[in-house]
Nucleic acid binder design. Structure first.
Length: 871
RNA sequence: GCCGGGAUGGUGAAAUUGGUAGACACGCCGGACUCAAAAUCCGGUGGGGUAAAACCCGUGUCGGUUCGAGUCCGACUCCCGGCACCA
């Protein structure tokens, strides 16, 4: 029976059946073997896979299968980041419990993942919404409370005054509540925080050791931690007969003599005090409390302020300095108060111009003239210049001035040098239902009391349907009512749940020992950890990856894990982007539409002029392109692609279309090409097998008696093996690896096999192609490997080796340039020395045309590559 | 606003260490096969120029370094990601 045509459905089903029956992907701890832990960021079960998932998990699968062929003991697990806001939104929209919605989604998406043939050990599957998992969030939280790493303080949240509920940043659109359209307010509430700032120094310093992380991620984390050394110092003041100090922090102590005012946040105690008998100021402070808490909003709003009427005293000059309330000063940073030096801080400059406050130059740069008409960048450049108008400090450079000023303030007990971090402690309290309950009981007599370990887990009731106004747990008496563990009196449970980043900060440890109910992690975690390769979207470069590092170090300090860092090598996948369309009905919430439902109108140059919803023909708003997300409904479901072309084509296409780190605007142009390639490979193999079987197979290539054609093909083959090994193993440029194999297959197509030796070479080429493609398109390679005459499956084969003897070539192409412009290409024997190459280049006819009549100033020879004649 | 990244043919992209710009594909054009279509195969395809070549121009914009710049440096434009409660 011949297998003339490629039937992806049956090929893929058979391969997947084989892997399942043989339990190929079940990983077992084996200290004798080198382990490789390959981890992809687990998905949020939003409903269906989107192309970003397919890309992410295909990358992980290619690396896993490649490492397996390198002989490693590979673990590739999968699970579900199952708590989160979209489940509550779905509950509101469809009146279905988040738990049921989430379980349905998991079941569907798991089926989709299985159909893609990923080499996943499903026996370790977990979901963060299972009590067996989240009880350990609660357990570790209690350990953190004991160690003082977790603590209670107030934090600011977005408050919807109509729904009487806390809003996520995502639910605030243009400063208004997404459902009610009401103007959002800030509100202070008690929250639990984790002292990530205690680990700031280690989190920063250890970035240097993460050599196999992308440079950009390390830079972003370093900037996020934002270490700066500066001066914390005080402006003494007297107000209503009380003497006190206004403390501020600055990194520019050298400009202290240029202070012309100070500014405090609206929430600063001094502002409240001053507002007590100043209705205008009270109104302004109330105004400052409107709007969202998002930093992007705070940083882009109009800078506004109002004087408090209080004067503070400059600690060095004794001058009176007016104190303002500024809407741009954040209570959460530093002291909630800043010194303002309009001449040398751009924000202060514009604020001073707006309110007519004095601007005093105290730094000068030779050759530059200061003018308060407009801002110039050198005003704030601390790398040049010296102090002026600064009395005793005149002439000093930045660092000398800072030292001198810090010394003088320290002598007066009014200041000290301080290291400051931009990083803030991690607030984990969420006023939401679908999350891990915070294990605290509130007692009128005893205050907040930790739930005793033997009462864990605090199980989240699963039959609630949130309605958008507050947390349904707060109305659930069966959950709320509990006796105080300390005094036994009736008390109430905490209703806040944990930030879902807690769930995702340690799930990779749990995969190593998902079945234990005795402990959070056991000794198997130390076999698999650290993760050798972590793969996930670049959008997680800071928060998730920083929180995980922090959590890991806390667990290390509690003696639970042996490693310092969780992820050895990191690959940050570029986002898969798609167009975004929405409508915004008057007074209602935004309604998004999937791009496949949209008809676009363009002008003759292809520019978008309008867009309408196909269903009703009415216009929709185009909102640019952006990441595929549940909330913007612009995801592309891979299902139809898999059904039409098969998993291998889907995998090949996403890996071929762009390098993994690059962002990708979604288009399925080119899927045909991937499918065509697999069919060509299939037919090339089947044609060969038929012929080979008929004309007595001579399976071994006799490398001692090759003709030129055979040698050329084998050279191309071994060049390709070398390139693909480097592209997959080191560079992670899967697209160029695939292109190299395509070139090889094209060359094979031009090779007419006549003799037994020809067919042996063809067999060698086909086997190598199947081996190197098997991590990318494992199903078709599984079948072809068997068809090529092997008993053992390709999954258990070692990666092919380069035959260095096959790479040897007689001639090399040398490029000849004249003044850097290409003028000739010469095929020259490889053994030619530099002088001979120079002569050959100069004597070329076309080179002569450009050299004739001019004098040769210089000849640059790059051996084996290029000659550049400079005239 | 701040931090990080990106921009190369009609399209996705390649060029790994400063050394041939556009590999490999998609699309399109032409041809073969076919009663016809699909599929498949062969050829062409950055722009200008030529009978064909030669040659000229060309990697977001402007400037610089270099024998030589897509690649390095400076300034800018636009797009994407993150900004602590989307995950």
């Amino acid at each position: 029976m011949t297998k003339r045509s490629y039937k992806h459905a049956s090929v893929e089903q058979a391969a997947q059946q084989y892997w399942a029956d043989a339990e190929c992907f079940r990983a077992t701890e084996d200290p004798a073997r080198e382990k490789f832990y390959c981890l992809s960021m687990f998905p949020y079960p939003s409903g269906r896979l989107h192309m970003g998932h397919v890309r992410n998990y295909t990358i992980g699968d290619v690396i896993s299968r490649y490492q397996r062929m390198q002989g490693k003991n590979v673990l590739q697990p999968m699970g579900w980041d199952a708590f989160g806001l979209p489940a509550e939104n779905a509950a509101m929209a469809n009146a279905v419990a988040p738990a049921a919605w989430t379980q349905d989604n998991i079941a569907y998406m798991k089926k989709q993942l299985r159909s893609l043939g990923f080499a996943i050990d499903w026996s370790r599957e977990l979901a963060t919404c299972e009590p067996d998992y989240y009880r350990w969030n609660q357990w570790l939280f209690l350990r953190m409370l004991e160690k003082g790493i977790a603590y209670l303080k107030t934090g600011t949240v977005n408050w919807d005054p109509v729904d009487q509920t806390v809003l996520a940043n995502e639910q605030v659109i243009d400063g208004k509540g997404w459902r009610t359209g009401a103007e959002v307010e800030k509100r202070e509430i008690p929250m639990y925080y984790l002292r990530i700032t205690d680990y700031a120094e280690e989190l920063l310093g250890a970035l240097d050791g993460l050599d196999d992380w992308p440079e950009r991620v390390r830079t972003m984390q370093a900037n996020w931690i934002g270490k700066s050394t500066g001066l914390r110092f005080a402006f003494p003041y007297e107000y209503r007969g009380v003497s006190d100090h206004l403390w501020v922090f600055t990194t520019r102590a050298d400009t202290i003599m240029g202070v012309t005012f100070c500014a405090i946040a609206a929430e600063h105690p001094l502002a409240e005090l001053a507002a007590a008998d100043n209705p205008e100021l009270a109104a302004f402070i109330a105004e400052c409390k409107a709007g969202s808490v998002m930093e992007a909003d705070l940083a882009t709003m109009d800078k506004r302020g109002m004087p408090t009427g209080i004067d503070v005293t400059h600690p060095l000059t004794g001058e009176s300095v007016p104190l303002w309330v500024g809407n741009y000063v954040l209570m959460g940073y530093g002291e909630g108060a800043v010194m303002a030096v309009p001449a040398h801080d751009e924000r202060d400059f514009h604020f001073a111009k707006q309110y007519g406050l004095p601007i005093r130059q105290v730094i000068a740069v030779d050759g530059e003239t200061f003018s308060d008409d407009g801002w110039q960048d050198w005003y704030a450049d601390k790398s040049q210049g010296h102090c002026v108008n600064s009395g005793a400090y005149d002439g000093l450079c930045y660092s000398d001035a800072v030292d001198a000023i810090a010394g003088d303030l320290a002598a007066k007990n009014l200041g000290e040098k301080q290291t400051q971090y931009r990083l803030r402690d991690w607030g984990i309290s969420r006023q939401r239902y679908w999350g891990c309950p915070i294990p605290i009981i509130h007692c009128d007599d005893c205050g907040p009391v930790p739930v005793p370990d033997d009462q864990l887990p605090v199980v989240l009731p699963e039959d609630c349907v949130p309605d958008g106004s507050g947390n349904p747990l707060a109305r659930l008496e069966a959950f709320l009512s509990v006796d105080c563990p300390v005094c036994g009196k009736p008390a109430r449970r905490e209703t806040d749940t944990m930030d879902t980043f807690v769930d995702s900060s340690w799930y990779f440890l749990r995969y190593a020992c998902a079945d234990t109910d005795k402990a959070m992690v056991d000794e198997r975690a130390d076999y698999w950890m650290p993760v050798d390769q972590y793969i996930g979207g670049i959008e997680h470069a800071i928060l998730h990856l920083l929180y995980s590092r922090f959590w890991h170090k806390v667990m290390r300090d509690l003696g639970l894990v042996g490693s310092d860092e969780p992820f050895t090598r990191l690959l940050t996948q570029g986002m898969v982007l798609n167009e975004i369309y929405y409508r915004h009905p008057e007074g209602g919430r935004r309604e998004y539409f999937n791009p496949v439902e949209i008809d676009k109108q363009t002008d003759e140059e292809g520019r978008l002029t309008g867009a309408t919803l196909r269903a009703d023909g009415q216009p929709v708003i185009y909102d640019g392109i952006g990441t595929m997300s549940k909330s913007k409904l612009n995801g592309v479901d891979p299902q139809s692609l898999i059904e039409q072309y098969g998993a291998d084509t889907a995998r090949l296409f996403v890996m071929f279309t762009a390098p993994p780190e690059q962002a990708l605007e979604w288009s399925d142009d080119g899927v045909q090409g991937a499918y065509r390639f697999l069919r060509r490979l299939w037919r090339a193999a089947q044609d060969h097998i038929e012929e080979h079987a008929v004309a007595s197979p001579e399976s071994e290539v006799d490398t001692g008696s090759l003709d030129d054609r055979q040698r050329d093909l084998r050279r191309k083959l071994h060049q390709t093996i070398g390139k693909v090994s480097d592209d997959i193993g080191r560079r992670y440029t899967f697209n160029t690896a695939i292109a190299a194999v395509m070139e090889l297959l094209n060359e094979l197509g031009r090779f007419a096999a006549a003799s037994a030796q020809d067919r042996a070479v063809v067999q060698e080429v086909l086997e190598a192609i199947v081996l190197v493609l098997s991590p990318i398109v494992p199903h078709v390679c599984h079948q072809l490997w068997l068809d090529l005459g092997h008993e053992e499956p390709v999954i258990d084969q070692p990666w092919p080796a380069v035959d260095k003897h096959a790479l040897v070539a007689d001639s090399v192409q040398i490029v000849v340039q004249v003044n850097g412009k290409l003028r000739a290409r010469l095929d020259l024997p490889v053994e030619l020395d530099e002088e001979a190459v120079r002569q050959a280049a100069l004597s070329d006819d076309n080179v002569q045309r450009f050299v004739a009549g001019k004098s040769v100033r210089k000849v640059v020879v790059v051996p084996g590559k290029l000659v550049n004649v400079v005239v």
